[in-house]
Amino acid sequence: MMARLEGKVALITGGASGIGMEVAKAYIAEGAQVAIMGLADDKLDAATASLGGDTISIAGDVRNYADNERAVAETVEAFGGLDIFVANAGVWDWGTRMVDMTPDQLEATYDEVLGTNLKGYMLGAKAAAVALAKRKGCMIFTLSTASVNSAGGGIVYTASKHAGLGVMRQLAYELAPHVRVNGVAVGAALTDLRGPSSLGLEGKSIKELPLKEAAPMFLPMGEQPEPSAFTAPYVLLAADGENASMTGTAIDCMCGYNIRGATGPNGWGDFDPAAS
């Protein structure tokens, strides 16, 4: 049976770890040639060596349009075209509430988190659109429980992911019928997703959270999946065939989070207006 992505070329931002790297593995297993984009560090080199197959790595910052443009150009040069663009690079705000940030922290965290999670998606999409249109390709955005729910992050992360859902839908409208644009709303995954430097959290990884222990409290199935468990929708959305008309859709891959919701204090919680 022919691999579902045989002959396809994919560019994945944030592809050196976490969901991005697992998607890269899944694409390679399905016959695709893959370029991963990430910040220039040892992790990017190690990821490329680990992935093997038809893989290249491209160092760059998704917040910079020239880097996105170069990533697309290097992918096309290496593999002859581009069929799939996965906007995946992200930063998490560790659920930091607005009332717990100083005004300066709020401003800086907004710029840092939305710069990666939203501006990075838009710049990558802009850079990839023409190359994708030439091959009737597709874009896939990594979204989140925080794209449609509260408490999947703090005020800034939630804003970035709600906005990412809107950008995905708008681009599906703008780029039709030449490029399909969809998203995968991923639940909390044990990845190396880091915090923002604006809050002094750049060294902290989401893997430090006790997600496996907490899973029975907030996931109906009672277990915390590994990152590899989230990749099937990315393959489905990238493949040709029965889903070829699917666009503007966010596939729910939240592990049932949105039918139970977050645990913890409701409403204002322990917010004390008199102390703010």
Rank of each mutant, 00 (worst) to 15 (best):
G52Q: 01
T116K: 00
A125Y: 03
G120C: 06
I206G: 08
W268D: 14
A40C: 07
A239T: 08
A244N: 05
G267N: 12
T116D: 03
E202L: 04
M221D: 14
A151C: 06
A214V: 13
H178E: 14
A46D: 06
L190P: 07
M37A: 14
R260E: 01
L118Q: 00
A87W: 02
G264V: 07
L199H: 04
M254D: 15
A10S: 04
Q170L: 07
G80R: 01
G15E: 04
V34I: 04
A275D: 10
F85V: 03
N68P: 13
L175C: 00
M2K: 13
D100L: 08
T116I: 15
S147F: 00
G124M: 11
A16K: 12
Y27M: 10
V62H: 01
N88R: 02
A127T: 10
A24R: 02
G60S: 04
V130N: 13
L11F: 08
E213G: 12
L237W: 03
A16M: 08
Q33D: 09
V186M: 05
E30I: 07
D54V: 00
G153K: 03
G256N: 12
E74H: 04
R4Q: 04
I56L: 08
G203P: 07
G187F: 00
E202F: 00
A26W: 01
A188R: 10
T13M: 09
L209S: 07
Q33H: 09
L193H: 06
E213H: 05
S198G: 01
L193D: 02
L82S: 07
G164L: 06
I56F: 01
E69D: 15
T145Q: 13
D240H: 06
A71I: 13
R169V: 12
T191Q: 02
V235C: 11
D61P: 11
A10T: 08
M221N: 14
S197Q: 13
I28M: 03
K134N: 06
P177W: 00
G200C: 02
A66R: 11
A188Y: 04
I251M: 08
E30S: 12
I56H: 06
I12C: 13
V179W: 03
M1I: 03
G38Y: 14
R260A: 07
L118M: 01
E226Q: 13
P177F: 04
D54W: 03
W94Q: 15
T249E: 13
V23Q: 07
A262E: 10
G264K: 00
L118G: 01
D41M: 07
V148D: 11
A66I: 03
M168W: 09
S228Y: 05
I251Q: 00
H178P: 04
A229K: 10
S276D: 14
G60F: 05
A87Y: 09
E6W: 08
N149Q: 13
P273M: 06
Y27D: 10
A78M: 06
P220T: 02
A238N: 01
L236R: 09
K43G: 15
